[in-house]
Design a protein around this nucleic acid. Structure first.
Lengths: 131, 131
DNA sequence: ATCTGTGTATCACTCCACTAATACACTATC
DNA sequence: GATAGTGTATTAGTGGAGTGATACACAGAT
């Protein structure tokens, strides 16, 4: 599958920074299996033109993706998706997940949800976002 | 139990806005059962003095808490913890939780965690943060 | 070498969140 | 009414995030 800028859309007045919207969408495409390692991302200028934003904004998104190890920059060519390599022990990776779940559980408690009701939502989400 | 400002601490240079730190700590105290409905929160000036910040910053935190229905303001007296009343249908409350869990699961997938490993972390968190 | 395609560094501008100083409004108590 | 305790409205200053214009550096094709 080839990736085109049309698969992306931004809402400049949504409050979420444009470059973060790009980052999230790339991550979502990867998690959803629509982007495979080795594929090239659209060039910053191509993406910028289609989305009607400055190419530096796209560059910022790509930098962020590179920093998080999702993408590799190849000078003069473009940005390529890296082989997803899982690093760290299982325990370490789980500990990285923990704060996010804590935040969710605190909110859930405020909403008066019990363990079973929280688990139910999680299972729905796990089905939505397959591995 | 009486609540004193000493139970709070802020880290001005942590990146998290001071007023949000207060909000989160009050929420955490409630979820943890250390704050009961009917109790008064420390006054804005008392809290501000102890924490070394402007009292308007505390006021902003309290306003946020009032907006989220956690606290009730009583003119001339102070801020009192409201009876925690759960509003909305179960389905509605669960749908409010969903985006938070989606965010967590996306991150978990990036970390290469499978359903079982995610559930394991959630169960730990649920034990930590009792209802 | 030149050209055209990559991404990047730098700088400047704007906007808004955060914070604080000050003055105000309300309530209880004396 | 005076006083002292609440929280709030208004205003201003500061800092940083986000965005974009411009100029640059690198790689490949010709």
């Amino acid at each position: 599958m080839t990736i085109t800028p049309r698969q992306f859309e931004v809402h400049p007045s949504s409050g979420v920074p444009i470059y973060l919207q790009i980052v999230e969408q790339v991550n979502a495409l990867i998690v959803g299996g629509h982007l495979q390692s080795g594929e090239m991302l659209p060039s910053v200028r191509q993406m910028a033109t289609e989305l009607g934003v400055n190419h530096m904004t796209i560059s910022k998104a790509y930098s962020r993706l590179e920093a998080s190890g999702v993408v590799e920059r190849i000078r003069g060519k473009g940005m390529m998706l890296k082989e997803s390599h899982v690093t760290g022990t299982l325990r370490h990776r789980q500990s990285e997940l923990q704060p996010l779940l804590e935040q969710a559980v605190i909110r859930a408690r405020q909403l008066g949800l019990d363990d079973q009701q929280i688990l139910s939502v999680l299972k729905t989400v796990l089905r939505e976002i397959q591995q």
